[in-house]
Amino acid sequence: MAVTEEEVEGLVFHPMDQFIIKPLFGGGDVHWFTPTNATLWMALAALCIIGLLVFGTRGRAIIPNRLQSIAELLYGMVHKMVEDVTGKDGLKYFPYVMTLFCFILFANFLALLPKSFSSTSHIAVTATLALLVFVGVTVLGFVKNGTHFLGLFWVSSAPLALRPVLAVIELISYFVRPVSHSIRLAGNVMAGHAVIKVFAAFAAVAAIAPVSIVAITAMYGLEVLVALIQAYVFTILTCVYLKDALHPGH
């Protein structure tokens, strides 16, 4: 399909080429162990997280410097979120939630650098993140509550006749969770980057280049917001699912 598009009016649209995964060193096939550009940017995200949360706080200062303030801000935000949504007993899983939040946030922000690669725009990555949460939460729910966990699907406040119908709906919505959980993140990031790329392709025409550049700037601002909000949303939905596992029943 890319074949036919690129000849239209002399404009070259390659909105999806930025997501292509290439091996870092030389050509060849992408094996499961090959270091690729996805690997590089995920590793950079990890390095940034470690740099901020470990080296930023190495002073252990009572009066924090800038990096330590940011680290404490992140910590406080996620900690409060976990505590507010799941309750005190959810704090045991706080490191994992923090890991998810930091990874997604930094992957999203790093993807906004020009010439970078957005690892969170790939469904494989977000689906893995979502499935980790989904499987983990389901297992946790059965381990913590036993068969009582199935009460999540049996809405006891509804009339008896409606309950089987509601149970089917609840079951479907439960299994759609990882799908929407992952596609929301990947779709948002992918859409934003693709739209920026499309505007960038329009910039080749001199007459509309200023409009295009203004549009790219505006989209970029929106994408910064989206990067933060999607990380927040992914994390808070994780907390909500965790709460369902810890305290099932409506």
Binding site: M81, D84, V85, S180, I183, R184, G187, N188, A191, I229, Y232, V233, I236, L237, V240
Partner: peptide, 20 residues
């Protein structure tokens, strides 16, 4: 605010589906 973002995320997910 948390509820707001959850609600917006659910509503927005369906738009993302259509985009997909």
């Amino acid at each position: 605010t948390a509820t707001l973002f959850i609600g917006m995320a659910f509503a927005e997910a369906l738009g993302i589906f259509s985009f997909l």
